[in-house]
Design a protein around this nucleic acid. Sequence first.
DNA 1: AAATGACGGGG
DNA 2: GTGTACGTCATTT
Length: 794
Amino acid sequence: MIKMIVEGLLLDVDYVTKDNKAVLRLFLKDSKEAFLVYDENFEPYFYVFAKESLEKTKKEIENLNDRRIIKIEKCKKKFIGKDVEVLKVVVDHPQSVPKVREVIKNLQSVEMIAEYDIPYARRYVIDKGLIPMQWLRIECNKSNNMLFAEKIEVFEKDIPELKILAFDIEVYNPKGAPRFDRDPIIMINLVSNTGLKKVLTWKEIEEDFVETCISEKAMIKRFEEIINEEDFDIIIGYNSSAFDFPYLKKRLEKLGVSIYLGRDKTPFKIEARAEVPEVKINGRVHIDLYPIVRRNISLSSYVLENVVKEILGIEKEKIEGKDIWRVWDKNDKEGLARLARYALEDAYYTFELGKKFLPLYYELSRLVKQPLQDVSRMTAGQLVEWFLLREAYYRNEVAPNKPKKEELKAREEETYVGGYVMEPKKGIKENIAVFDFRSLYPSIIVTHNIDPSTLIIDKNCRENKVPELGYCFSKEKEGFIPSILKMLIEKRQKVKKKMKEAKGIEKKFLDVQQKALKILANSFYGYMGYARARWYRRECAESVAAFARYYIKKVMEIAEKEFNLEVVYGDTDSLFVLIPENKKEVIEEFLNYVNKSLPGNIELEFEGFYKRGIFVTKKKYALISEDGKIVAKGLEVVRRDWAKIAKETQQKVIEVLLKEGSPEKALEIVRNVIKKIKNRKVSLDDITIYTQITKNISEYKTLEPHVVAAKKLQKKGIKISPGMIIGYVITKGSKSISQRAEPIDYVSLDDYDPDYYIENQILPAVERIFEVVGYSKSFLRASEKQQTLTRWFS
DNA sequence: AAATGACGGGG
DNA sequence: GTGTACGTCATTT
């Protein structure tokens, strides 16, 4: 056994079981290579609160004679700000926790149990004070060529160059959605910061970045080889959790091959989660950019091309997914080369998106102090929760439990008045300035000391009283949440101050840091009102919202009364104001005036200027900026289970209204579409609705259209299995919509029901928009029904 | 009115 | 893995 000291950046932590004991694995990376350190010095535990005396409860637990229980200790802790004494029950293995806790929680003398559901690796990084994406100096023992940690300390140092691979697969798909049991992977596209720009495939393609393998199987094995040879730290994809990796896994099963991508030479695993599946490649970090982009940027569509356009400002061409197989089958030299170029582009842009977002997640990982891959999957509420769990540990607070099912249901039903949403002045408006107050919520929490422990429910309370509500917040003692939030805000201000003097990379680095702090700080309000939160407290969230309403209304009043500006819309922390032609300077004046009148660090910001907007209802509007970018909120019908013709019609209507400001032209578009539908001048492609079968047909309780269509296919001898996407058309007749759904392969243009497409597809997609520009629902419907009588459709 | 089921991205 | 989303919409029952 040799003693030694190693240093490395903490990329990930998990545990393995050796001799029935859990051993933690720290995956580290120094400036040269990746390495692994084990830690055996940690034990799983949870807390027990006693009804009467700790001693009595301790005895009762001891009397269980449960061999999984290793130790029971009395501890002094705090719970929601109050001193408590609890028992710490240590067990032999993390997987014993759920079993032992079930026994203990039902004991007579037990009041409740706590912190019984914290994943072992996360508990470990919290208790040991480790910071992922930060450097560790570890004193270890080396035996059998393995390193065992004895003492660990965190120190600050820049993140070393990490090896990052972006990948993407192309799949043969003659039936639209690829069927994993039949359709092969035809290309694997790789772009890395180690200089890789490669398309693996199994057809000869004349491009120098293409590497031709002898078969699909050989191509996948080559993919494995490249990952292991280059030893990537991070593997990124776009929707790779839900598509690329699951598809790859199914192909591997079908082909009877295994690949070992883990640093410990294990296969990658796909773990079912409520959200999207989680891909685990031991020792490496897998990050799917699709959910990240969705969480961080508000767009009407998240197809890669659109994301690249909006975020990177690059117009990228797309080979329609549906056409890939055709190009592949055609075997035309130029076609295949073109396919390969597009394929490489997909990986390239995924890589570019990674460059854009990864630094932020490195920072969030350091800030929340949980592993990068975990943090990359967290929603805002989870970021706050894990951050608070760490803070609670260091303040000796026992964390409140997550709500049980009934409690969750009760919380979800507990509604309160949220932000103020103004009923928009409906219709088309021009020259719109948008302002928002993003720092409003955190500032309110800190300024008014809003916390579960400071809440006073008393109609007659006076000091620090919440507008409209019978609550006050004591200012005697700083609350848990306000004190943490205050620290975050101050830290951010410091970083921003430093940023002013910094340059180049240093400045960028600081900018990412302040963004991470901002994201976290802005999530605390939502967190207190989030039903699944441990530190949930309805009255707190309710009070923040009440203060926010007070401030936004005040600012709207200033705009109208003091600046004579028309406010056309506002939502929670934003307001939309009409700016008179040639008076843009008023934006600055208004902003300055408002900010002088607001208390503390509460600040209004200018978000942007828009040439035109359509305001439909609360939360439903579309804006076009001066450079022609359209931002649509709440109006999109871009789902697969709508007919293409409905989606396209809606898009065209919004575009014409915003670009030309002409309801008449938009109406003309709708009339033409209706006419086309009536005259059967559409294609089957336009009217096909695609819906996925998600379980065995026999398990369906209700007979929806796609289920009926699938049953009809089954009768024709076609095997239906979960995951299949059924394309169908609604045909003429008097039965229910479902009964009239016919599989696309068995209908002709003469069969479809024009009324269904007009009434249930076209009109619902556009009528709300038309209503606000002066054409009522009944007008649209009436003019549609009078088709043969009126000029509209003749 | 309540219950049920599907959407997103990927090809 | 000591963790199971989310908010919205259409259609059926």
